[in-house]
Every structure is written in structure tokens, then in C-alpha cells.
Design a protein around this nucleic acid. Sequence first.
RNA 1: GCACCGGUGCCCGAGCGGACCAAGGGAACGGCCUGCAAAGCCGUAAAGCCGCGGGUUCAAAUCCCGCCCGGUGCUCCA
Length: 462
Amino acid sequence: MLRFTDSLTGDKVDFEPRDPGKASVYWCGPTVYDVPHLGHARSTLAFDVLVRYLRWTGLDVTAVSNITDIDDKIINRAADEGSTEPDVAQRFEATFVEQMDRLNVAHPDLRPRATEYVDRMVEVISDLVERGMAYTTDSGVYFDVDRLDEYGALVGRSVEDLREGAGARVDVDEDKTDPLDFALWKAAKPGEPTWDSPWGPGRPGWHIECVAMSLHLLGDGFDIHGGGDDLVFPHHENERAEALGCGRAFARHWVHNGMVQVDGEKMSKSLGNFTTLAGLLDAWDPRALRLLVLQTHYRRTMEIGSTTLDQAAAALARLDKFADRMAEADLPDAAADDAVLDRFRAAMDDDLGTPQALAVVFDAVRDANRALDAEDDDTAAALAAAALDATTALGLELGAAASPDADAGDDPEATEIDGLVDRRLAARAAKDFAEADRIRDELTARGIVLEDGPSGTTWRRG
RNA sequence: GCACCGGUGCCCGAGCGGACCAAGGGAACGGCCUGCAAAGCCGUAAAGCCGCGGGUUCAAAUCCCGCCCGGUGCUCCA
């Protein structure tokens, strides 16, 4: 039985789906006003693994993640570059999807856009107004926090507490009767995209979209709502307020992932293009980032840097070699080792303990290698099957074929290097090791690493 | 300022009151392999006690209190 930490209570709770055998999951996607950063990657990876694992255990999962395609930042961006909001949104949504694809993130079943949900948002806001949970001013419609006893439950703070800190970082809109109240509908401002509403032209507030989408697509009382830690307040607190304010059951469980820290200075020094996810993905195998993310528990703050990425890449290389070795060993068909799978499942069931789950995988890898060394093919096959099944559940494809280097295409330099490698092979065959080593040294100086194997010599850029 | 989360070996990072343990990964070292390497495989050692100081307990890295340091939040940031 899967258990995970519910942000609402802070306790580990058993996951009991609303509908037996199924799971409904919603997590907040990006606001598409710029290229994705490392935080997007971590968060998206966290929920990708959650969804994959739920499916692996046999649940029928419906996964929904939104795209916020209208918001202040998008408007500002469009103004800055002299384009339009839809243009900005479409461009960066495409970039987001493309980069998540590189990370082998499974597409959510549904990826609704805010601009497609304005009508439903208006319905929810109308409901709130009718129930007296919201009020109207010249600048828009606001949720009245005082009307909801439970407000603050998700952050674990009282309304008085919150009120004290309100405005500490951002100026408070003077139209609101309470600094904690938040916008459901923003009245039109000149030059901004607008939609019609019972309160005049304008655009929706931020939180309302997730409520309208999740309740519409997944139904009241859906199972899991997730997002980054930084969204707990105010975003998720306010979403919850909106749904409860309508008298509707909202998410049964809340799951939040921790933040990413980057040693920016060190990073830019070693690799100038590292500040964006794209830069990272160009410099490292995307699977190394996934592995690195999995090696840290999803709730913890984690450090991503060139050192930790290199370390993850080295571990990944070992897993690739393992997968290749087992594939080439011509092992008998074997069912995955149950003991390994049980340990894997136990680790994952305990709040998605991917670090321990990977420890299980690495243990199995070592044991399988040892079994193969001892020519115990049956044991090796069972262990390898379990290890590979587990990594698949985590979204990690293994083996040289899975590496982005596998299809590097034609490289003008490659032909020349191949020629040098051939000459070295000839020299070795003639026992002219001095010449062979000279060629190798020359290639080494150029950053080329040679690997002599039973089936010939391969090279790679080190 | 207030709130929440965290501070574990050379590095990343598990552990959340006890005897299967201070996991696992990277690096290091040794062996096998190799003409020699590289890669790979196997093995070894490494935290004298898990930020600091108190306390609770038969028993604490794990609970409580104080302090120091880092992160996040306090209206639109995953």
C-alpha cells in the first residue's frame, strides 16, 4: 500500500483512491512566459515518477497538468518583444513540451490551457459570488477570506498569522477589504487581453484556473493535487478556498516537491550555458538529470550542479554498461526476481522513496554481475530482469542504445578518428606498441578516450 | 520580522527511538582483465558518533529546548 506525506496534515497517509483501481492526479504546470528552468524539470520529473509508479502498481491513472497561458508575465513579455500573448504562450509551451520530452516525461493525459477554461472559471466565480463568498470592486472580484473558517489550513497558519505577514513582500491592493483577500477576476486594463464576464471585461485571477480545470476534468474529491513547494501559499491555499467556498470537495491529498538549489557562480564559471534547462540537457545526458533527481527524496531541497551531474552521469554509465552486458550475455528467459521487486515496491510505497528504490536497483545490479561472473545465468537473468523492470518504472531507459550519443549522426571529425584508430589497431597487431601508444596519446590529447574490447576498439569524447 | 523545511563520510544523499547494520551513488585504494592503459567486474577502507550546547529515555542521527548556518513562503514563482 502506497503511503505518502500529505501536505495538508504533514503526516504520511495511506493512499486510498476515490475510485478503487483508479487514481486521479492533477499538478500545476508552468506559466509559459519563458524557457523552462531546473525547477520545472525537478517538479515535472517528480510527478512523472508518481504517475509512472501508480501505473506500475496497476492503477488506472488519469493525469492532468495545466498550462497557464495568460498572466502578467506573459503580458509583459509580449509587450517587451512586441509580439502577442498567444504567440508568447504558444512558443514557450512548445519549448516546455519539447524539453520534457527530452527528459522522457510521459505526457499527461490532459493538458488544459487557461484561456480555454475562462467560461468555466466564470461559472465558478459566479457560484462564489452567489454564495456570498466573494465581493466586487472597481478593480475586480475578490474572494472574502473571512467567510471560510478553514482558510490557512494548508499552510498550517491562522488567518491572524497570515494577516500579520500580508504585504511583507508585495504591495497590497487598496481595493480589497482585507489584505488576504485575493482576486478571482481582474477588471480589464488598457492594452490587455480580456474576456467578457458578468462583472465586465477582464481576465481571471491565477488560482481559479486550476480549480475549474481539476474539478471539471477529474471531478469533485479527486485524489492528488501537486506542485512545487513554493505553490503551497498562496496558490494552493487559495485554490482550496475557492473550491471549498463553492461547497465542493477538492483534492483528497496534497503532494509538494522541494526546491532546487544551484550554485550559480560555480555553474556559470564552468559552463556558461547552464542557467537554463536546455543548457543542462545539451551538456549532460537527460537521463543523468533524472537519475540525480531520483537519488534525492522528492520533498527535499536538492542541489544540482556540474559536480553532482557528473556523479550521476558516472552512475548512469555503469547502469548502461550493465544493461548491455546482460543483453549480450544471451541469458535464459527468467521472471524478475521477486525479492528485489518486493524491496523496490516497499521503498516506493513509503512516500515514493526513490533513493532507497535506487539502492535496491544498484544492489541487484551488483548481485547480477556477480552471478554472471560465477556463470549462474539463471540468477543473473532474474536479477537483471528485476533491476530493469524497476528502472523502467522510474522512467529510466538503460543501455547504450538509450543514450543520446547513440545516434550522433555523421561527424566530419569522426572519420579521421576512425582512421587513426585503425592505424593503431594495425600497429598493435604488428606488436609495435610504441606507435600504438603514440596514436592513443595523440587522441587522448584531443579529448578522445579509447576503449579496447573483445569486438574491437571504440572511442568516445571524454 | 514571522512561519515552515533542512544541516549525516572527500562529494551527492538515505535513515525519522534500539539489535540486518550509519543504505545507495560518485571519488579513492587493491585485485581480475589488458602488451600497457581505458572501460568493465569484484573487493576494501572511509563518518570515533550524524551543525553546536543542553535535556528526555534502559536506549537518539532519529524526540524536546536554545543557539548558529542554509533554503522556501508571507498574492501570481515548480
